[in-house]
């Protein structure tokens, strides 16, 4: 799994801690002030589980609980859940500030791949 972003995003890599803060819905802005827009696949999909565990290194149920805690106390929002990899690619390519993930073999040229350091 690789992290993908809208092609206009200036970064080509980011620290894992920053990625966790973005996926944890705590960091809402890219350095250039563009709003972050997070797309994920449903919790029960194998892609989401693999991304959470191996790229983010957070168990998917812990990520879900962190979102729940924020949404139900007025401190944050949920990411947008996308139905398929094709839709993930299309939405990330067309939404300024978007970030998501796909299998490395499925990356298309119209999204930017972010390296995690």
């Amino acid at each position: 799994m690789v992290v993908i972003a809208h092609p206009a995003i200036a970064e080509d890599s980011m620290p894992r801690a920053t990625l966790r803060a973005i996926l944890g819905m705590r960091l809402q802005r890219w350095p250039g002030e563009t709003p972050v827009k997070v797309f994920v696949l449903a919790d029960e999909t194998p892609e989401h589980a693999t991304f959470s565990k191996s790229v983010l290194q957070v168990f998917p149920q812990q990520l879900r609980m962190a979102w729940d805690r924020q949404v139900f106390s007025g401190q944050g929002q949920y990411p947008e859940v996308i139905a398929s990899t094709q839709e993930m690619l299309a939405r990330v390519a067309s939404t300024p500030g978007a970030i998501g993930y796909v299998k490395a073999s499925e990356v298309t040229p119209n999204v930017r791949v972010l390296k995690i350091r």
Partner: peptide
């Protein structure tokens, strides 16, 4: 204040009380 290393802010209004791990929800 928000950067890739952290953020800081203020909440105003009726706020859930931070109290142990479970109180806010």
């Amino acid at each position: 204040m928000s950067s890739e290393g952290g953020r800081a802010g203020i909440r105003m209004g009726r706020i859930k009380t931070a109290y142990g791990l479970y109180n806010t929800t």
